[in-house]
Design a protein around this nucleic acid. Sequence first.
RNA 1: GUGGUCGUAGCUCAAUGGCAGAGCUCCAGGUUGUGGUCCUGGCUGUUGCGGGUUCGAGUCCCGUCGAUCACCCCA
Length: 418
Amino acid sequence: MIQGLPGFRDFFPEDCARRNHVVATWREISRRYGFVEFDGPALESTDLYRKKNEAGAEILEQLYSFTDRGGREVALRPEMTPTLARMVAAREKHYRKPMKWFCVSNFFRHERQQKGRLREFLQFNADILGETSPQADAEILALAIDLMRSFGFTAEHFVVRLSDRKAWMDFLQSRGCDEAACRTTLACADKLEREPEEKLNAKLAATGLTVADLKAFIAAGSPEAFAPVLEALAARGLSGFVQPDLSIVRGLAYYTGVVFEIFDRSKNLRALAGGGRYDGLVKGLSDGSADLPAIGFGMGDVVLGHLIDETPAAAEKLRAALAASTDVFVVIADESRRPEALQIVQTCRELGLSTDFPLKPAKVGKQFQEAEHLGATHAVVIGQEWPQIKLKHLATRAEESLDHAALAPTLKTYKLHS
RNA sequence: GUGGUCGUAGCUCAAUGGCAGAGCUCCAGGUUGUGGUCCUGGCUGUUGCGGGUUCGAGUCCCGUCGAUCACCCCA
């Protein structure tokens, strides 16, 4: 048998239900925040990713790229930002600022899979373009926090670690670092928790700084840089979810201001979400045709799924969302009445009720069993008594007999009450 | 790209180098129109694949494919 490709997932009905729960939550909270959805193509010109990554070639090596039948160099999208920048540059004049856009898309990276990382994954992205105010930074952070809360997580499950690239750059420039030295230093700051001190000090030698200097800067904090954002979050009652932490620098070179990552409190998993301000990127990617400041973040479905499974409150919320929702099961007690039963099925469906029935003749007992398995709340029994039929509430086993013409009005009442 | 662990029924797992099994799921019944429990029966295997050692391999050895975890890296 031919197997699926490594790192790619099949979505059986129960998996699709999970995915739909996640996607529905992303969309609902984004809507509350006034973000509008967009999307782009899964396949882009490879140049779109080359342009952004002249310095770091790592992402290019993880690209699913090939030459198409027309001789074009193309690649499956590994992230959304270049596509967003391309789209925004094309119609920048058309939209009022600030633009609040989000998308839910699949992305591809050719790398070895491990926990929380696959070769195709779903990711939510949200960006505010055309606004430099810290209010925009706070709006993005609040959205990220409320997304997490909507999945059933609380401050005891996750934390937003907030940092600021600009604070780092100011610090480094005050110590006389040039651009190359800044890059080296930030790369080392990113590895403080993972690499031994001697190794990092060796890398830092050329910059004139030491691990001790970096740790001192992180320990000192930078309250003035965070103040406006923290105040805006405090006014929303969301302070408890955020922890200023300058040790977060993020790997990307293009961030220019606030950067943040969301972690689970137990630190079992990699980052659940991450993002920051990138005021120069749209200009760079559009060759200067559009110059928009921007802040955004991404949240993938894989790590999120792990945390949901590990967190009872979130797992319960997922289960509730997945609960079977058949409203009516039509029992055909007398097979000769199948045409009438189909008529009832159609009526129920036109009322908007989730309705099912046996596709082949079956004993009444089996039919009730089937209704039970589907989690139906009501059964309608069609038999010899036609035009009289029976409506049964399955949870209470209460049964009433009524004329088939009275079924629709009765069901409407039930629906209103539930 | 590097390294560790693991591949037995649809799923979860047993089987000292000696007859490949159980539970769950699924399917069919349990006497003619009422459901969750229960009872009975049934299906599903080239033990991932290919070599080797052995009288004999699911078990030991090598290779390969896959899964998983970590490193690397993280848009």
